[in-house]
Amino acid sequence: MIIVGGDRGAKSFIALACNVLLLVMAVFIISHGVNPVLVTIIGTIIFCQITLIYQNGHNLKTYAAVISVVGVILLLSLLVSILGTKSNLGGYSELDLSSELSVYLSPNININMNQLMICMIIISLLGAVMDTAMAITSSLYEFNEVNSELTFSELVRLGFNVGRDILGTTVNTIFFATIGETMMIGILFIKNKYTFESVINSKEFYKNLFDLVISNIGCLLIIPISIFICTYMIKSNNSFIKKVKDYCQKMSNEN
Results as ranks from 00 to 15, higher is better:
7 D>N: 08
8 R>N: 12
11 K>P: 03
11 K>W: 09
12 S>Y: 09
14 I>E: 10
14 I>R: 06
16 L>F: 15
19 N>C: 13
20 V>N: 13
22 L>W: 03
24 V>D: 03
29 I>K: 00
29 I>R: 00
30 I>L: 04
30 I>Y: 00
31 S>M: 15
31 S>G: 15
31 S>W: 08
32 H>W: 11
33 G>R: 00
35 N>I: 03
37 V>T: 03
41 I>M: 07
48 C>R: 01
50 I>Y: 03
51 T>A: 15
51 T>R: 07
62 T>I: 04
64 A>S: 13
65 A>P: 02
69 V>P: 01
69 V>F: 03
70 V>N: 09
72 V>S: 02
74 L>G: 06
80 V>T: 06
81 S>Y: 15
87 S>A: 15
88 N>K: 10
88 N>R: 05
88 N>E: 09
88 N>G: 08
89 L>G: 04
91 G>A: 09
95 L>S: 08
99 S>V: 11
101 L>T: 12
104 Y>W: 15
104 Y>R: 11
105 L>R: 13
105 L>M: 15
110 N>K: 11
111 I>V: 14
111 I>M: 11
111 I>Q: 07
115 Q>S: 12
120 M>T: 10
125 L>R: 03
125 L>G: 07
126 L>R: 02
129 V>E: 02
130 M>A: 05
131 D>Y: 02
132 T>M: 09
136 I>D: 00
140 L>N: 01
140 L>G: 00
141 Y>Q: 08
146 V>L: 13
149 E>T: 12
152 F>D: 05
155 L>N: 02
157 R>N: 11
158 L>A: 09
165 D>W: 06
165 D>Y: 10
167 L>S: 06
173 T>G: 09
174 I>W: 03
178 T>R: 14
178 T>I: 14
179 I>H: 02
182 T>Y: 09
183 M>A: 07
183 M>V: 11
183 M>R: 03
184 M>P: 04
184 M>K: 14
190 I>L: 12
194 Y>D: 06
198 S>G: 13
199 V>R: 05
201 N>W: 06
202 S>G: 05
204 E>P: 01
206 Y>R: 06
210 F>C: 02
213 V>E: 04
214 I>H: 00
215 S>N: 14
215 S>H: 07
222 I>Y: 05
222 I>L: 07
228 F>R: 00
231 T>V: 14
231 T>E: 03
232 Y>E: 01
232 Y>G: 00
232 Y>H: 10
233 M>A: 00
234 I>P: 00
236 S>G: 10
237 N>I: 02
239 S>N: 13
240 F>I: 09
242 K>L: 11
246 D>N: 14
247 Y>R: 12
248 C>N: 15
253 N>R: 13
253 N>G: 05
